[in-house]
Amino acid sequence: MASRSYGQYCGVTTAVELIGERWALLIIRDLLVGPRRYTDLKQGLPKIPTNILSTRLKELQEGGVVRRVPLLHCGLVYELTPYGRELEPIVLALGRWGFQEMGDPQPEDVVTADSLTMALRTAFQTDAAATLPPADYELHVADVALRVQVDASGLRIAQLQPAGRPIDPRLGTQASTSGEPDLVFAAGPGIRRLISGELTPAAAIDQEVLAIVSGDGTLLERFARTFHIPIDPGVVLVA
């Protein structure tokens, strides 16, 4: 467990002592996508010092949140324990809460495959997906490419390499990458404005927030209904 103690007997206090140290929740966020090698975690969190990553992983293991296990042909990987996986709805709720104040990205901000995967899971509207026809998207944001498949049964996401090849499925890929997607489109961080409803799909294209690469562009309307986090009008976004 983390060495910091707040000296209070409270469930919230215990939770903060377990996962409240800097970088801990981002490690958990990435492990919610799937098991990760140490090098995968370091690559997905490029600004984390290696000694801090090692320390956080040790603390999370001691707290019963993370465990280290062998994975065939992948070596030793870190994964969430069943106790750790109980954090998923909490992390998704935090993502929706934080989305309200994201504002525009700073020049040094990056988007990673795991952060984008979790962003889509955060924004996913199960009720909308249940009432809409299935759709198969390929989304490109900077160097990140995701295959995103939606139907009445839920959401499946596969992370693709820059060349379009799927990442090892044992490290978290779920969607099928066979066949052609219905829609391929590219976007920058401004895709947040589509997900929030600030921009319609047509306006997002007109303002070059995103661009259709191939496929049926009308499916953007379906994407915007399926992945949506409405912004509270009482919240002022930070510029």
Rank of each mutant, 00 (worst) to 15 (best):
residue 63 G to N: 07
residue 211 A to V: 14
residue 134 P to T: 07
residue 135 A to P: 14
residue 198 E to G: 07
residue 155 L to T: 14
residue 107 P to M: 05
residue 179 G to T: 15
residue 221 E to P: 03
residue 147 R to W: 15
residue 84 G to C: 03
residue 191 I to H: 07
residue 24 A to K: 09
residue 9 Y to G: 00
residue 130 A to P: 04
residue 220 L to I: 08
residue 62 E to N: 15
residue 79 E to N: 02
residue 55 T to Q: 15
residue 59 E to V: 00
residue 128 A to E: 15
residue 57 L to Q: 11
residue 134 P to S: 11
residue 36 R to A: 13
residue 7 G to F: 04
residue 67 R to T: 14
residue 118 M to I: 03
residue 86 E to I: 10
residue 236 V to P: 00
residue 162 P to I: 01
residue 56 R to P: 03
residue 183 L to A: 08
residue 79 E to G: 00
residue 9 Y to S: 00
residue 111 V to D: 10
residue 159 Q to Y: 01
residue 105 P to I: 05
residue 21 E to P: 07
residue 112 T to S: 02
residue 168 D to C: 06
residue 134 P to M: 06
residue 171 L to H: 08
residue 2 A to Y: 13
residue 145 A to G: 06
residue 214 S to P: 04
residue 1 M to Q: 13
residue 200 T to G: 11
residue 153 S to C: 14
residue 204 A to D: 12
residue 107 P to V: 04
residue 61 Q to D: 05
residue 36 R to M: 07
residue 140 H to N: 06
residue 12 V to I: 12
residue 186 A to L: 02
residue 182 D to I: 03
residue 135 A to K: 13
residue 166 P to T: 06
residue 169 P to I: 01
residue 195 I to H: 11
residue 56 R to C: 03
residue 120 L to Q: 04
residue 68 R to A: 05
residue 38 Y to F: 15
residue 109 D to I: 10
residue 215 G to C: 01
residue 219 L to K: 11
residue 72 L to Q: 12
residue 132 L to N: 12
residue 109 D to M: 14
residue 41 L to H: 12
residue 228 H to L: 02
residue 96 R to C: 01
residue 221 E to T: 11
residue 114 D to Q: 12
residue 112 T to V: 00
residue 228 H to Q: 06
residue 17 E to L: 10
residue 223 F to G: 00
residue 50 T to F: 05
residue 118 M to N: 01
residue 28 I to P: 04
residue 156 R to M: 06
residue 2 A to L: 09
residue 51 N to W: 13
residue 230 P to N: 12
residue 201 P to G: 09
residue 147 R to G: 09
residue 20 G to Y: 11
residue 214 S to F: 07
residue 69 V to H: 09
residue 233 P to I: 10
residue 234 G to H: 14
residue 30 D to M: 01
residue 236 V to I: 10
residue 70 P to K: 12
residue 15 A to V: 07
residue 5 S to L: 02
residue 217 G to E: 12
residue 217 G to W: 12
residue 160 L to I: 05
residue 134 P to R: 12
residue 134 P to H: 13
residue 92 L to V: 02
residue 23 W to T: 02
residue 46 P to Y: 11
residue 169 P to T: 03
residue 203 A to K: 14
residue 229 I to E: 05
residue 22 R to Q: 11
residue 57 L to D: 06
residue 70 P to C: 02
residue 144 V to F: 11
residue 159 Q to V: 04
residue 26 L to E: 05
residue 190 G to K: 12
residue 191 I to S: 00
residue 171 L to K: 10
residue 111 V to F: 15
residue 187 A to P: 06
residue 14 T to W: 10
residue 58 K to V: 01
residue 107 P to I: 04
residue 165 R to I: 04
residue 123 A to I: 00
residue 82 P to S: 11
residue 2 A to D: 15
residue 206 D to G: 10
residue 136 D to P: 09
residue 93 A to C: 02
residue 10 C to Q: 09
residue 103 G to D: 10
residue 73 H to F: 15
residue 146 L to C: 04
residue 84 G to I: 02
residue 52 I to A: 06
residue 76 L to Q: 15
